[in-house]
Structures are given as structure tokens and as C-alpha cells.
Simulated assay, not measured.
Amino acid sequence: MVKDSVQVNSISPKTILWYFPPRYVPTDNRGKVPLPACPELKCFVTRNKTFLPESDAVIFNSQFIEGDIPPRKPDQVWIFHNSEVPYHKSTNRPYHRNPWSSSFNWTMAYRHDSDIFRPYGVLRRRPNIPIKNYTSIVRKKTKLVAWMASNCADWSKRRSYVRELQKHIQVDIYGACGKMVFSRLRNKEWMAYLNETYKFYLAFENNYCLDYITEKLFNYFTLDLVTVVRGGGNYSRDVPPNTYLNVADFKSPKELADRLWFLHYNTDRYIDILKRKERYYYQNEDYRFTFLGSPYIEQHYEQEPMCDLCRRLRDITHYRKTIPDILSWWKKGLCRNPVTYM
């Protein structure tokens, strides 16, 4: 993304406060720290609420909004942030009603119609494509299809789809939804094992929602395997063509299985997909945190969106607006879940 030219010598600092931060936001920025991707813009970020009266922008992650609405200084920009779909059990969240629902100025989420587009990741073209011995890579693989899933609620009928797919091809299910075990704390080992062992990985979203393409695709895209996607995102827009398989392009799980078998037995066609994938890399950031006493690592694409937010603060007159009802933007008619696995 090309950064706008900004005269930084004479600009005054701006403060961005995470009032209700997601769990991965570092807990050590109780003071104010410069945005790491664009320190020259002189925007500083904090999660210390004592800075609320002087903050130029305040970010509220909708999953954690609770209680009474805080005091607000004039011209302070309030931002509705989320990386998750509208929750099924979120009907009583405070932002569903006034005064919260009419208090936001900008949106910051994975949707392309957000004021600040904040996807799970972006795929960039590699300046230099690595040379690999793909024949050797494929020859070492001993298994066909893998799926890792910890959320077993079947809103999108993805488990139903996998059960039907298993009638036609072997699918190894890891995590809470299957019988195969590989600890989340051994993520590097898991990725290496998956990369060396399997030909295909199922990147199935747990909800069908507008623009919702998560780490389930991005984390595995650069591995030496073919990713199979299923969800409500616009994959043809956000993912390079012929680098993945989309369930939506097949009439049934059996038809998808037939294609997987075809690629299994036709190594040249399988390698063609791997070579096209190798032209791209996944850009994001690692965030380490502790949750319920256990260490976690999540991948998010947040630094550049935060810089975009800062640039908006530098031209606040141009971007000034108020959203009358955040719920009408966030929830209505934007998610669907199939009645059957198809």
C-alpha cells in the first residue's frame, strides 16, 4: 500500500486509545508507544484508559464492549473494531442500543466496505520466486487431506460437509472436532508436519459472512500443499486465481473428492498449483499473549490499518462522519448459514 505523503516536521502528535482492546493487543503499552509501521506519522497508541480525555481516536473492539458509555471530548473519533463475525449470541451487547449504537464515527473490520479495511491478512506478489524441487516435495507426502478445527459448532455445516467428503476420500481431522491430536502450543511443528505430510488442507470457515476470509486460508496458503476453501468471502477477488480449490465450484462433496483424487494421481497438475502459489506470500504480524493461563500466538494484519487510521486523523475534516446505527451496518443481512452441507 502506498503511503500518502505527510509533512511530519510540524505536525502535532496524535493519541489512539484501545478502550476495549481484543485479547492480542499487548498489555505492556500502558504508556503511549509510536505505531511500529509508521512512526514518522507521530501517532501513539495505548490501552491505558487514563489517556481517554486527551485521545484523538478511541477504538472499541465490539466483542468486549460492556457497561456504560464513557465520557467523550469534542471531535474525538470513536471506532467500531472487530475481526470476528457478528456473534450468534450477541443480542444483548451494549452496542445494540443507544447510546452506544449511535456513537461511532468509523468502522475497522475485515469487510471491504469498512472505513478502515483490516483483513486477516493480504497476499503480496513475491519480488523473487524461490526455486524448489517440487517433484521431491510431492514424493515425500504420505497423506491426502487434513483439517484442523477447534470450534465444533456447525453453523456453516462444515462438519456435515466433511463427513460427506469422508465417504469418498480420507480426511484426517485434528483438534477438538476430530480424533487426531496436535497441540496448538506446537504450532511450528504442526505446520512443518502438515507441509511435509499432506497434499490438501481444508480451510473451512465456521460462518458464511460477507468478506469473511480468515487465517484458516492465509496461515496455510504458503505451505507446499493445496488449500480447499469454503465460506462467504469473495475468494476470486481476494486470492490469486488457480492457487486454491473452492467448494462452491463443485456440485457435491463427491465431485470435490473426484478432483482431489485427480490431482493426487496427476502430479504435474498438482505441481502447477504449487508453483502458482509460490508467486505470493502472506503478510501479517504475530501477536503473542496468554489466554486462560496458556500461551497463544495469533496472526493479524493490523499495523498498516492502524497507519491508515492515523492518516485519517491528519485529515479529519475530509473523513468526518457519524454512523446513525452501527447495528444496521454490522449485522443485517450480511451472514447466512446453509440449511444443509451444500
Rank of each mutant, 00 (worst) to 15 (best):
36 P>N: 14
37 A>R: 13
37 A>D: 14
37 A>F: 03
37 A>H: 10
38 C>N: 10
38 C>P: 12
39 P>A: 01
39 P>C: 05
39 P>S: 08
39 P>Y: 10
39 P>N: 11
39 P>D: 11
40 E>I: 04
41 L>I: 10
41 L>H: 10
42 K>T: 00
42 K>N: 13
43 C>V: 04
43 C>N: 11
43 C>L: 00
44 F>R: 11
44 F>M: 11
44 F>E: 14
45 V>L: 08
46 T>C: 08
46 T>L: 09
46 T>S: 15
46 T>W: 11
46 T>H: 07
46 T>Q: 12
47 R>D: 13
47 R>I: 03
47 R>P: 10
48 N>S: 13
48 N>Y: 03
49 K>V: 10
50 T>L: 03
51 F>P: 03
52 L>H: 04
52 L>M: 07
52 L>S: 10
52 L>E: 05
53 P>L: 04
53 P>D: 05
53 P>F: 01
53 P>E: 05
55 S>R: 05
57 A>Y: 13
57 A>V: 00
58 V>D: 15
59 I>T: 06
60 F>P: 12
61 N>G: 04
62 S>D: 09
62 S>K: 10
62 S>P: 00
63 Q>T: 02
63 Q>W: 01
64 F>W: 08
66 E>Y: 06
66 E>P: 01
66 E>K: 14
66 E>G: 02
66 E>D: 13
67 G>A: 06
67 G>Y: 01
67 G>V: 00
69 I>E: 06
69 I>G: 00
69 I>R: 15
70 P>A: 03
72 R>Q: 13
72 R>M: 04
72 R>W: 00
73 K>P: 02
73 K>A: 12
74 P>D: 07
76 Q>P: 15
76 Q>A: 14
76 Q>V: 02
77 V>E: 09
78 W>P: 11
81 H>P: 01
81 H>W: 06
82 N>A: 03
82 N>K: 01
82 N>I: 00
82 N>S: 11
83 S>Q: 10
83 S>V: 07
83 S>C: 04
86 P>S: 04
86 P>G: 08
87 Y>G: 09
87 Y>L: 08
87 Y>R: 14
87 Y>I: 00
